[in-house]
Amino acid sequence: MRTNSATNLFPSATHAQPKRKMSRMARQEELTGWLMAGPWIIGLILWTVGPFVAAGYLAFTDYDILSRANFVGFDNFERMLFADPLFWTALKVTSIYAVVSIPLQMALGLFLAILLNMRIRGLTLLRTIYYLPAVLSGVAVSLLWIWVFSADWGIINFVLSLVGITGPSWLSSEKWALPALITMSLWGVGSGLIIYLAGLQGVPTELYEAAEIDGAGRWPKFWQITLPMISPVLLFQLIIGIIGALQVFTEGYVMTEGGPNNATLFFLLYLWRNAFQFLKMGYASALAWAIFIYIMALTLLVLRSSAAWVFYIGEIKGRS
């Protein structure tokens, strides 16, 4: 098993030999690559580059959507960093949410996927049930959860009361609102489950068979075969988890409106308010770049570290 190559980030690049002249085959590969990625590149230019440039420019203006934007230099960024305590509150709340919910979601998702990948009866039905929460979205869900968390009549406090604990009024408590929303995010673990399941399916059974011949038990098989083999999927989940958690919005928007006392003021909620409620689209654009840079930095950190823990099967034998 080869590990720790600095370029592990981009697996097949590891084997790309610097060549003065491209062979016919390499040229063909190059051409096919561009052709296949072509629509994506066109799409990027069509729908993404323009809007990105616009958002970049607007961050330096006082754009309010309704009237002409004036260039204001670094005003928005200055205000954001030095004169807006809510910026830091939002950043803190969102970071806590991410730090707690991502590992929990990943561990729970993988755990359930492994259970649901066993040969047991009723698998199809069980898998469907576990995916159910991901199917449902919108107002129905938020109402459902407001009910679950209700102080006096909610299920959670009912269960707690069985063991003699008086539960708090979750959503209206400054201390418990964020933990409540994190708990809620675990309910939707079903969509991650699908990806883990698909990843587990991709592990060649031959590897397990070989290990069993060697007499390997459950844990060694998990640590030495399953985890390394699905590590690209874990990397995907981690990066998507970071992007998703730092852009969490709906729960704060619908269920708590960012309160109480800003306990659930998610960054994107604050951004959305600035953009479409307070008509400060210029400032919102500056906020957008702040969160963009934050996510990007974390992603790069993860990608850098992935060299040490992500295993690409393409490297078993390498390429010519």
Partner: peptide
């Protein structure tokens, strides 16, 4: 409490 009366 407001949270309580809102639901039922």
């Amino acid at each position: 409490k407001p949270s309580e009366t809102g639901e039922f």
